[in-house]
Simulated assay, not measured.
Amino acid sequence: MQAPKSDQFSRFSFIVEIATQMREAMLPYLDTSGMKETVRVAHSGDTTFGLDVVAEEALARAVQNSGEKIACYSEDKGLIQDTSNPEWLLVVDPIDGTRPLICGFEMGMISIAVSPFSPTATFSEIEAGILLEIRTGDIYFGVKNQGVKILSRAKKKLNPSMTTDFKKMFWSYDSVGRPSRWLFHYLGEMMDISGMEAAVFLFSNVTFSLTRILTGNLDAYVEIGGRILKDHPESKEEFLKIGNGRIMGTFPYDIAAAYLLLQEAHCPMTDAYGNSLEQIPLLNLEKSSQILSCVAAGNTTLHGKIIQSINQEA
């Protein structure tokens, strides 16, 4: 028998506490000098900025203080297992959207997904997820088969869009590390159609976009980096040039928590072919081997139309 809904959320409240402690540690450093400085290259291959270091250090302290038996995989450090018999695997992006956040914008999120510990864990095994908006403190918290809670001073509500017309579609995409000519090849027609009566945005933050699908502020999010590489292997050299010798794109830690939340909200989220993400491994142990693609929407009709449009441009 399943525990009551409130008990299920309570069982995973430790990820809320971890995210909250991380935010509190970062707040004094927002908009201070030095946070835009490049410090190193992360385990993922992305640039580590000064604020990313603050976030990673805060994550380590919060995990240690949690009292839980945790192995933690993060963007900057990779897999850290400080206990011999972990119960939980946390897949963490300490800051999704560092670039807009250090420029003073609100698009900065803490993303944590949790599954039972296994080196071979997949998206299907995610038990809970949290996205915490760093500047506002808004929390999006979901537990498998129990739904989504939004804790917001602005009293945001779960309200996915029913828009199905590209002309009325407010949506976003991502570009960091992706060759622009291929992005416009696949997405240009949708951009043209939606540009006048709606809009297309570039936030450089996947989780910010996906939370706005939950609230209905956005109708869709499209990320096609992984599909570009599969459809056009010759584009690899362009990815490497843009990424300073590394292939950059969407990794499991970018979307794991958001995936659980959208599943609980009955919002479709697949790869850019329309395939399920359920069997995608959570641990990106071979770095660029897991460049993903992602299409999410407020409803299945719009999602299907987006996949069809991408297929036509392939």
Rank of each mutant, 00 (worst) to 15 (best):
D76W: 01
N275R: 10
D82I: 02
I228Q: 07
F117T: 11
A297F: 06
M109G: 02
F239R: 15
E24N: 15
E17A: 12
Q2D: 04
S10P: 05
T48Q: 05
M191Y: 06
K305T: 01
I150M: 02
L30N: 03
E286F: 14
L89G: 04
T32Q: 14
E125T: 08
T38G: 06
I112C: 11
G129W: 03
I228N: 10
A19W: 01
R178Y: 11
G188V: 15
R61V: 05
P4I: 00
I95Y: 00
I112S: 10
G188N: 14
T98R: 10
D46I: 08
S6A: 00
Q146T: 07
P281I: 08
V54H: 03
Y186V: 08
E133Y: 13
M107S: 09
Q2K: 11
T98Q: 08
E237M: 06
D165I: 10
L151D: 12
K157D: 09
L262D: 05
I139W: 07
L229N: 03
S118W: 07
F251I: 09
W88Q: 13
F14A: 00
D174I: 00
L79D: 12
T163D: 02
L89H: 03
L214D: 03
L229F: 02
V63M: 04
G216P: 11
S293K: 10
P86G: 08
